[in-house]
Simulated scan of single mutants.
Amino acid sequence: MPIFVIVNVTHHNSKFIFTDHYERLFSGLLKYYQGEMITGLLLLYQSEVIHLIECNKDIQYAVLRDLQEMEEQNKPLLEDVRVVVLSHNIPQRLFRCWNIQPFHVDASHWKTEQEEQETVQKLSAEAISILLRLGAQLGHHSKVEFKPALESLCKQKPELVIPREMLSALLCCGDLLRPTQFLRMYDRPVDVNMDLENVGMAAVHLLHMV
């Protein structure tokens, strides 16, 4: 049951403040929801953060509420936050633990012209598919093994790296909701909630086709 969030941070140090914040938040949540697990991946790009979190529904909402509070308090470490997808229908976890990884990505050949032609649904599905395929390759590794495995894989298979230009395009997508907007949508009828999950499930189907 993953939630996939993209964050644009204000400066380099914000990434490490953000990381420390989540370590403390998850520690508190796991004490409250005893017996539950939080797994996933926190990738720290140069100024963007990708966060894929696998957890139960209650923890998902706690994470969104925490992001909402940070937005409303106008904390300086977050410049922009977009929820790409939240789903309750994933049959199994990709990761054995929660991994944090600084991640330097050079400029890619992913062009602005391509960005302009992509719909938000297609762009989101492409980003999710890349992340899921990366997770499928790395998820079985322990924390100790994870960093060298990630570095090696990204050199061998650069197609498993979400380009920074794609992240920037997603952060600029007005159709992708902020945490406050996303939580408001979940207070609406079931058919709206199902629509929010369609992009994520499309990406999951793509994963099984790889």
Rank of each mutant, 00 (worst) to 15 (best):
D66L: 03
V161P: 00
H109D: 14
M1G: 10
L131I: 11
L43S: 05
V83T: 03
R164Q: 12
K147T: 06
R164L: 12
V161Y: 02
T19A: 13
Q181D: 14
K157E: 12
S142A: 09
E48A: 08
G40V: 01
G139D: 07
C55T: 04
D191Y: 14
D20I: 07
Y45D: 05
K15D: 06
C172Q: 15
L64T: 06
H104F: 08
M1I: 03
G139S: 03
I3H: 02
G139E: 06
Q60R: 05
S108L: 01
R82F: 00
H21D: 12
Q68C: 08
T19M: 12
I3Q: 09
A149P: 02
G28K: 14
L41C: 06
R164P: 10
L132W: 06
H140C: 08
T10R: 14
E116V: 14
V5K: 03
V49R: 02
L43C: 02
Y32T: 15
L138V: 02
T10N: 12
V105G: 03
L29F: 02
E36F: 04
T39M: 09
S152P: 03
L67I: 01
C173V: 01
A149M: 01
Q121W: 04
N56S: 07
E151M: 07
T180V: 11
F146K: 00
A149E: 01
A202V: 07
F4N: 03
L29I: 00
Q114G: 09
Q121P: 07
Y33W: 10
V63Q: 10
V84A: 12
D106T: 13
K143Y: 01
V144L: 15
A62P: 01
V120Y: 15
V105F: 00
L29C: 02
D20S: 13
P189L: 01
S108A: 07
C154T: 15
R164Y: 08
P158V: 07
I17E: 15
G174L: 00
H12F: 15
V85Y: 11
E116D: 13
L43H: 04
N13P: 00
R184L: 12
E165K: 05
C97N: 15
M37R: 15
L170H: 04
H208G: 13
I3K: 04
I50W: 02
C97E: 14
D80N: 13
Q92V: 01
I162L: 03
V7Q: 10
S14R: 10
D106V: 13
E54N: 03
E126C: 11
L67A: 10
K111R: 13
D80M: 07
K57T: 09
E118F: 09
K111N: 05
K155M: 08
P102S: 03
I90C: 10
E151H: 07
Q121K: 08
K111W: 07
Q73Y: 10
Y32N: 06
S168E: 13
T10W: 01
I50G: 00
I162E: 01
Q181W: 06
L196C: 01
N56A: 00
G174V: 00
I128Q: 04
S87E: 11
A125Q: 11
Q156K: 10
Q34K: 15
D191K: 09
Q73D: 14
P148K: 01
L167P: 00
R184C: 04
G40Y: 02
Q92G: 06
M1H: 11
L44Y: 05
L167Y: 05
K75N: 06
L196E: 05
Q92K: 04
E71V: 08
D175Q: 12
Q181Y: 04
I90R: 10
A203H: 05
